[in-house]
Write a protein that binds this DNA or RNA. Structure first.
Lengths: 156, 156
DNA sequence: GTTCGTGCAAATACTTTGCACGTAT
DNA sequence: ATACGTGCAAAGTATTTGCACGAAC
Protein backbone atom coordinates (compact mmCIF):
# COMPACT_ATOMS: atom_id res chain seq x y z
CA UNK A 1 0.00 0.00 0.00
CA UNK A 2 2.43 2.63 1.14
CA UNK A 3 6.08 2.79 0.39
CA UNK A 4 8.46 2.61 3.26
CA UNK A 5 9.21 5.86 4.91
CA UNK A 6 12.68 7.14 4.03
CA UNK A 7 13.87 7.54 7.57
CA UNK A 8 17.04 8.93 9.00
CA UNK A 9 18.32 5.71 10.48
CA UNK A 10 17.88 3.77 7.27
CA UNK A 11 17.62 0.41 8.91
CA UNK A 12 18.13 0.21 12.61
CA UNK A 13 15.00 1.83 13.93
CA UNK A 14 14.43 -0.84 16.53
CA UNK A 15 17.94 -0.45 17.88
CA UNK A 16 17.43 3.23 18.48
CA UNK A 17 13.98 2.64 19.93
CA UNK A 18 15.32 -0.03 22.26
CA UNK A 19 17.92 2.43 23.48
CA UNK A 20 15.21 4.95 24.35
CA UNK A 21 13.23 2.34 26.20
CA UNK A 22 16.25 1.39 28.26
CA UNK A 23 16.98 5.00 29.06
CA UNK A 24 13.48 5.35 30.49
CA UNK A 25 13.52 2.01 32.33
CA UNK A 26 10.73 0.66 30.22
CA UNK A 27 10.43 -2.67 28.52
CA UNK A 28 10.50 -2.96 24.77
CA UNK A 29 7.91 -5.73 24.51
CA UNK A 30 6.89 -7.54 21.39
CA UNK A 31 3.68 -5.55 21.10
CA UNK A 32 5.57 -2.31 21.32
CA UNK A 33 7.98 -3.60 18.75
CA UNK A 34 5.04 -4.47 16.54
CA UNK A 35 3.65 -0.95 16.80
CA UNK A 36 7.02 0.52 15.87
CA UNK A 37 7.29 -1.84 12.93
CA UNK A 38 3.84 -0.87 11.69
CA UNK A 39 4.56 2.83 12.01
CA UNK A 40 7.94 2.65 10.37
CA UNK A 41 6.44 0.82 7.41
CA UNK A 42 4.08 3.70 6.71
CA UNK A 43 4.72 6.90 4.83
CA UNK A 44 2.14 8.77 6.84
CA UNK A 45 0.75 9.01 10.36
CA UNK A 46 -1.68 6.25 11.24
CA UNK A 47 -4.97 6.17 13.08
CA UNK A 48 -5.75 3.62 15.79
CA UNK A 49 -7.99 1.65 13.47
CA UNK A 50 -5.32 1.54 10.79
CA UNK A 51 -2.74 0.30 13.26
CA UNK A 52 -5.10 -2.38 14.48
CA UNK A 53 -5.85 -3.50 10.96
CA UNK A 54 -2.20 -3.66 9.96
CA UNK A 55 -1.41 -5.62 13.09
CA UNK A 56 -4.08 -8.16 12.43
CA UNK A 57 -3.02 -8.31 8.77
CA UNK A 58 0.35 -9.32 10.13
CA UNK A 59 -1.44 -12.07 12.10
CA UNK A 60 -0.61 -10.43 15.41
CA UNK A 61 -2.91 -9.98 18.38
CA UNK A 62 -3.18 -6.44 19.60
CA UNK A 63 -6.05 -5.30 21.78
CA UNK A 64 -7.24 -1.77 21.23
CA UNK A 65 -6.79 -0.87 24.87
CA UNK A 66 -3.24 -2.17 24.85
CA UNK A 67 -2.54 -0.12 21.76
CA UNK A 68 -3.76 3.03 23.43
CA UNK A 69 -1.77 2.23 26.54
CA UNK A 70 1.37 1.44 24.61
CA UNK A 71 1.09 4.62 22.61
CA UNK A 72 1.15 6.57 25.84
CA UNK A 73 4.36 4.81 26.80
CA UNK A 74 5.87 5.17 23.35
CA UNK A 75 5.13 8.87 23.45
CA UNK A 76 6.61 9.25 26.94
CA UNK A 77 9.75 7.44 25.87
CA UNK A 78 10.08 9.75 22.89
CA UNK A 79 9.52 7.21 20.15
CA UNK A 80 6.19 8.27 18.70
CA UNK A 81 4.33 11.53 18.55
CA UNK A 82 0.71 12.29 18.16
CA UNK A 83 -0.32 14.26 15.10
CA UNK A 84 -3.38 16.48 15.01
CA UNK A 85 -5.30 16.64 11.79
CA UNK A 86 -8.55 18.42 10.98
CA UNK A 87 -10.68 15.83 12.69
CA UNK A 88 -10.80 14.28 16.13
CA UNK A 89 -9.09 11.07 15.29
CA UNK A 90 -5.72 10.55 16.89
CA UNK A 91 -2.87 9.79 14.51
CA UNK A 92 0.60 8.68 15.40
CA UNK A 93 3.96 8.55 13.75
CA UNK A 94 7.53 7.93 14.79
CA UNK A 95 9.24 10.89 16.40
CA UNK A 96 10.62 13.62 14.24
CA UNK A 97 14.18 12.81 15.25
CA UNK A 98 13.80 9.19 14.19
CA UNK A 99 11.91 9.86 11.00
CA UNK A 100 13.75 13.07 10.18
CA UNK A 101 12.14 16.47 10.45
CA UNK A 102 9.23 16.92 8.10
CA UNK A 103 5.82 18.45 7.69
CA UNK A 104 2.35 17.39 6.63
CA UNK A 105 -0.10 17.72 3.82
CA UNK A 106 -3.40 17.63 5.65
CA UNK A 107 -6.58 17.03 3.69
CA UNK A 108 -9.40 19.04 5.20
CA UNK A 109 -11.97 16.84 3.49
CA UNK A 110 -10.92 13.34 4.50
CA UNK A 111 -8.40 14.16 7.22
CA UNK A 112 -5.68 12.09 5.63
CA UNK A 113 -2.11 13.21 6.15
CA UNK A 114 0.95 12.78 4.00
CA UNK A 115 4.52 13.59 4.89
CA UNK A 116 6.52 16.24 3.05
CA UNK A 117 9.85 17.90 3.49
CA UNK A 118 10.72 21.47 2.83
CA UNK A 119 14.12 22.82 1.79
CA UNK A 120 16.69 23.17 4.55
CA UNK A 121 17.24 26.81 3.72
CA UNK A 122 13.63 27.68 4.41
CA UNK A 123 13.61 25.44 7.42
CA UNK A 124 16.56 27.13 9.02
CA UNK A 125 15.44 30.69 8.43
CA UNK A 126 12.10 29.69 9.84
CA UNK A 127 13.81 28.16 12.85
CA UNK A 128 15.79 31.22 13.70
CA UNK A 129 12.74 33.44 13.36
CA UNK A 130 10.62 31.23 15.57
CA UNK A 131 13.34 31.07 18.19
CA UNK A 132 13.35 34.85 18.40
CA UNK A 133 9.59 35.07 18.58
CA UNK A 134 9.40 32.46 21.32
CA UNK A 135 12.06 34.20 23.36
CA UNK A 136 10.28 37.49 22.94
CA UNK A 137 7.07 35.92 24.26
CA UNK A 138 8.56 34.11 27.23
CA UNK A 139 7.73 30.82 25.61
CA UNK A 140 9.99 27.79 25.80
CA UNK A 141 10.05 26.44 22.27
CA UNK A 142 10.40 22.69 21.83
CA UNK A 143 9.43 22.21 18.23
CA UNK A 144 7.35 23.68 15.48
CA UNK A 145 4.52 22.27 13.46
CA UNK A 146 3.98 23.35 9.90
CA UNK A 147 1.11 21.85 7.99
CA UNK A 148 -0.26 22.48 4.54
CA UNK A 149 -4.02 22.41 4.67
CA UNK A 150 -6.07 21.74 1.56
CA UNK A 151 -7.44 18.94 -0.58
CA UNK A 152 -5.54 15.79 -1.33
CA UNK A 153 -5.53 14.46 -4.87
CA UNK A 154 -8.28 11.97 -4.08
CA UNK A 155 -10.61 14.64 -2.69
CA UNK A 156 -10.13 16.99 -5.68
CA UNK B 1 -9.07 39.12 31.30
CA UNK B 2 -7.70 39.26 27.79
CA UNK B 3 -7.06 42.30 25.76
CA UNK B 4 -9.04 42.72 22.62
CA UNK B 5 -7.61 41.06 19.61
CA UNK B 6 -6.03 43.55 17.21
CA UNK B 7 -8.02 42.52 14.18
CA UNK B 8 -7.84 43.59 10.61
CA UNK B 9 -11.25 45.22 10.43
CA UNK B 10 -10.66 47.36 13.49
CA UNK B 11 -14.28 47.76 14.40
CA UNK B 12 -16.83 46.39 12.02
CA UNK B 13 -16.46 42.67 12.56
CA UNK B 14 -20.20 42.10 12.75
CA UNK B 15 -20.76 43.91 9.46
CA UNK B 16 -18.35 41.64 7.67
CA UNK B 17 -19.75 38.57 9.38
CA UNK B 18 -23.30 39.57 8.46
CA UNK B 19 -22.18 39.86 4.85
CA UNK B 20 -20.84 36.32 4.90
CA UNK B 21 -24.04 35.01 6.40
CA UNK B 22 -26.09 36.66 3.69
CA UNK B 23 -23.84 35.27 1.00
CA UNK B 24 -24.51 31.77 2.31
CA UNK B 25 -28.26 32.30 2.84
CA UNK B 26 -27.94 31.84 6.55
CA UNK B 27 -29.38 33.90 9.35
CA UNK B 28 -27.16 35.94 11.59
CA UNK B 29 -29.12 35.30 14.79
CA UNK B 30 -28.47 36.88 18.14
CA UNK B 31 -26.79 33.75 19.45
CA UNK B 32 -24.45 33.66 16.52
CA UNK B 33 -23.76 37.33 17.05
CA UNK B 34 -23.01 36.58 20.67
CA UNK B 35 -20.51 33.90 19.72
CA UNK B 36 -18.76 36.27 17.34
CA UNK B 37 -18.66 38.95 20.02
CA UNK B 38 -17.13 36.56 22.53
CA UNK B 39 -14.52 35.34 20.07
CA UNK B 40 -13.57 38.79 18.87
CA UNK B 41 -13.06 39.92 22.46
CA UNK B 42 -10.43 37.25 23.01
CA UNK B 43 -6.77 37.28 22.12
CA UNK B 44 -6.66 33.52 21.76
CA UNK B 45 -8.78 30.63 20.51
CA UNK B 46 -11.46 29.53 22.96
CA UNK B 47 -12.75 26.17 24.08
CA UNK B 48 -16.45 25.34 24.26
CA UNK B 49 -16.47 25.65 28.03
CA UNK B 50 -14.80 29.05 27.89
CA UNK B 51 -17.32 30.32 25.36
CA UNK B 52 -20.18 29.07 27.52
CA UNK B 53 -18.75 30.75 30.58
CA UNK B 54 -18.21 34.06 28.83
CA UNK B 55 -21.71 33.95 27.46
CA UNK B 56 -23.25 33.35 30.84
CA UNK B 57 -20.98 36.02 32.31
CA UNK B 58 -22.62 38.32 29.81
CA UNK B 59 -26.00 37.16 31.16
CA UNK B 60 -26.87 35.44 27.92
CA UNK B 61 -28.47 32.04 27.51
CA UNK B 62 -26.56 29.70 25.25
CA UNK B 63 -27.11 25.96 25.34
CA UNK B 64 -24.08 23.83 24.72
CA UNK B 65 -25.74 21.95 21.90
CA UNK B 66 -26.69 25.19 20.19
CA UNK B 67 -23.14 26.39 20.53
CA UNK B 68 -21.82 23.29 18.83
CA UNK B 69 -24.42 23.59 16.11
CA UNK B 70 -23.76 27.25 15.57
CA UNK B 71 -20.04 26.68 15.36
CA UNK B 72 -20.64 24.28 12.52
CA UNK B 73 -22.58 26.97 10.71
CA UNK B 74 -20.08 29.68 11.54
CA UNK B 75 -17.34 27.49 10.17
CA UNK B 76 -19.28 26.71 7.00
CA UNK B 77 -19.96 30.37 6.41
CA UNK B 78 -16.27 31.12 6.80
CA UNK B 79 -16.43 33.16 9.98
CA UNK B 80 -14.71 30.92 12.49
CA UNK B 81 -12.14 28.19 12.22
CA UNK B 82 -11.34 25.32 14.46
CA UNK B 83 -7.87 25.21 15.95
CA UNK B 84 -6.16 21.98 16.94
CA UNK B 85 -3.99 22.03 20.00
CA UNK B 86 -2.15 19.16 21.67
CA UNK B 87 -5.25 17.83 23.36
CA UNK B 88 -8.69 16.72 22.23
CA UNK B 89 -10.53 19.85 23.14
CA UNK B 90 -11.90 21.85 20.24
CA UNK B 91 -10.90 25.50 20.12
CA UNK B 92 -12.28 28.14 17.86
CA UNK B 93 -11.30 31.58 16.68
CA UNK B 94 -12.43 34.01 14.02
CA UNK B 95 -11.20 33.23 10.54
CA UNK B 96 -7.71 34.15 9.54
CA UNK B 97 -8.95 36.67 7.03
CA UNK B 98 -11.00 38.49 9.65
CA UNK B 99 -8.43 38.37 12.40
CA UNK B 100 -5.45 38.77 10.12
CA UNK B 101 -3.08 35.95 9.37
CA UNK B 102 -1.23 34.71 12.41
CA UNK B 103 0.15 31.67 14.14
CA UNK B 104 0.00 30.02 17.53
CA UNK B 105 2.05 29.39 20.60
CA UNK B 106 0.73 26.03 21.75
CA UNK B 107 1.53 24.85 25.26
CA UNK B 108 2.01 21.11 25.26
CA UNK B 109 1.43 20.97 29.02
CA UNK B 110 -1.86 22.81 29.45
CA UNK B 111 -2.97 23.03 25.84
CA UNK B 112 -3.48 26.76 25.96
CA UNK B 113 -2.90 28.70 22.78
CA UNK B 114 -1.78 32.26 22.23
CA UNK B 115 -1.70 34.17 18.98
CA UNK B 116 1.53 35.41 17.45
CA UNK B 117 2.54 36.99 14.19
CA UNK B 118 5.70 36.39 12.25
CA UNK B 119 7.44 38.90 9.97
CA UNK B 120 5.93 39.34 6.51
CA UNK B 121 9.22 38.56 4.85
CA UNK B 122 9.39 35.10 6.40
CA UNK B 123 5.71 34.60 5.79
CA UNK B 124 5.98 35.31 2.10
CA UNK B 125 9.05 33.20 1.44
CA UNK B 126 7.32 30.43 3.29
CA UNK B 127 4.22 30.92 1.20
CA UNK B 128 6.00 30.66 -2.09
CA UNK B 129 7.85 27.56 -0.97
CA UNK B 130 4.70 25.84 0.21
CA UNK B 131 2.91 26.69 -2.99
CA UNK B 132 5.63 24.95 -4.98
CA UNK B 133 5.63 21.92 -2.72
CA UNK B 134 1.87 21.58 -2.91
CA UNK B 135 1.85 21.84 -6.67
CA UNK B 136 4.61 19.27 -6.88
CA UNK B 137 2.53 16.87 -4.77
CA UNK B 138 -0.77 17.34 -6.57
CA UNK B 139 -2.22 18.94 -3.48
CA UNK B 140 -4.60 21.88 -3.60
CA UNK B 141 -3.28 24.25 -0.95
CA UNK B 142 -5.83 26.36 0.91
CA UNK B 143 -3.84 27.60 3.87
CA UNK B 144 -0.98 26.71 6.09
CA UNK B 145 -0.76 26.18 9.79
CA UNK B 146 2.38 27.04 11.67
CA UNK B 147 2.45 26.47 15.40
CA UNK B 148 5.18 26.84 17.97
CA UNK B 149 4.98 23.95 20.40
CA UNK B 150 6.48 24.21 23.87
CA UNK B 151 5.75 25.44 27.36
CA UNK B 152 3.90 28.63 28.09
CA UNK B 153 5.22 30.95 30.78
CA UNK B 154 2.77 29.56 33.35
CA UNK B 155 3.83 25.96 32.75
CA UNK B 156 7.56 26.76 33.05
C1' DG C 1 -47.47 29.01 7.69
C1' DT C 2 -43.32 27.08 6.53
C1' DT C 3 -38.55 27.08 7.28
C1' DC C 4 -34.95 27.57 10.47
C1' DG C 5 -33.05 27.97 15.43
C1' DT C 6 -33.00 26.46 20.25
C1' DG C 7 -32.98 23.66 24.61
C1' DC C 8 -33.22 19.37 26.65
C1' DA C 9 -32.04 14.76 27.01
C1' DA C 10 -30.46 10.71 24.76
C1' DA C 11 -27.10 8.77 21.73
C1' DT C 12 -22.52 8.34 19.60
C1' DA C 13 -17.49 8.06 18.99
C1' DC C 14 -13.08 7.93 20.67
C1' DT C 15 -10.32 7.10 24.52
C1' DT C 16 -9.30 5.66 29.35
C1' DT C 17 -9.61 2.62 33.29
C1' DG C 18 -10.50 -1.51 36.68
C1' DC C 19 -9.70 -5.97 37.16
C1' DA C 20 -7.94 -10.67 36.66
C1' DC C 21 -4.54 -13.09 34.54
C1' DG C 22 -0.06 -13.73 32.03
C1' DT C 23 4.83 -12.57 31.33
C1' DA C 24 9.33 -10.88 32.44
C1' DT C 25 12.93 -9.88 35.85
C1' DA D 1 8.27 -13.12 44.25
C1' DT D 2 7.37 -8.81 42.49
C1' DA D 3 6.58 -5.57 39.18
C1' DC D 4 4.92 -4.78 34.68
C1' DG D 5 1.99 -5.96 30.35
C1' DT D 6 -2.34 -7.58 28.27
C1' DG D 7 -7.31 -8.48 27.10
C1' DC D 8 -11.91 -7.80 28.15
C1' DA D 9 -15.61 -5.15 29.46
C1' DA D 10 -17.13 -1.04 31.76
C1' DA D 11 -16.67 3.89 32.39
C1' DG D 12 -15.49 8.61 30.82
C1' DT D 13 -15.49 12.71 28.07
C1' DA D 14 -16.27 15.62 24.17
C1' DT D 15 -19.41 16.05 20.59
C1' DT D 16 -23.66 15.03 17.82
C1' DT D 17 -28.51 14.13 17.14
C1' DG D 18 -33.85 13.51 17.74
C1' DC D 19 -37.58 15.82 19.11
C1' DA D 20 -40.84 19.41 20.51
C1' DC D 21 -41.31 24.12 20.81
C1' DG D 22 -40.32 28.98 19.55
C1' DA D 23 -38.72 32.65 16.40
C1' DA D 24 -37.94 34.56 11.84
C1' DC D 25 -39.19 35.24 7.07
Amino acid sequence: MAKKHPNKLSGDVHGEVARRFIKHDQRYTSQRRLIVTVLSASDRPLMIQQMLKRSSDAKKVLAQSSLYRNLVVLEAVGVVQRIFSTDDVARYELNDDILGHHHHLVCSKCGDIRDVRIPDSIESSLDSTLTKIAKHSGFQLDQHRLDLIGRCSRCV
